[in-house]
Amino acid sequence: MRLRRRPLRPREQVLGRRAPGDSFLHRAPAGAKVLVLALVTVVVLLLRDPLVGVAVVGLVLGLTLLARIPVLMLLVLIRRLWIVLAVLAVLQWILNDPATGTEVLARILACLLAAQLLLLTTDPVELVGVLRRVLQPLRFLGLRPGRVALAALIMLRAVPYLADSFHMGAQQARARGLERDLRARTVPLLLGAVDHARNTGRALNARGIEEA
């Protein structure tokens, strides 16, 4: 029997699955990984050379194998985005010469795969820590990193909660024959979000918490 594909995976899987294992990539500090990813992206974006793009794709695949991460988990990304990538390929074939087309595709693929590798080996909560450190220098502008971190943590918790309620709203809409009605699908989600925000804000107020 074929498994039906569900449009939204509920609960914590919504924010991506981590690859199993405890490799050097899993253990590396999230800040370092984000920094490397940023540098790689900048290099790929600036050099605009098909060889660089291809080299980065190779590097990402090599690291994946070294860290014993199932390559399929990396390539899921391509399966998810294949329509977009195919359209891009056709577009480049029509509008640009083959060299530019290869470069554009290699560049996009390299950057997306490198990001996917970070995602597979990093806990979302660690990224909030990175965000807080990134924002430290902006304190003199009046920005409070603790508040931003608190908002980010609330967001992480709200995503699975709202994804569930969106899923449920979609089912209710279907039950009423309104699955094509964008309003019927989004309004319950929005009201649920407002309610969740109010409850969260009240709880924070009651505890006297303004930053994390």
């Binding site: 909560v125 608190l150 943590l153 609330i154 992480l156 918790r157 909660y161 969740h196 409850n199 969260t200 009240r202 709880a203 924070l204 107020n205 009651a206 505890r207 006297g208 918490i209 994390a212």
Partner: peptide
């Protein structure tokens, strides 16, 4: 508020940390 603690009905909205 420091003297009076408050517990709400929805547990999902009260916890923020990992």
């Amino acid at each position: 508020r420091q003297r009076a603690g408050f517990v709400f009905s929805n547990p999902a909205a009260q916890l923020v940390m990992p």
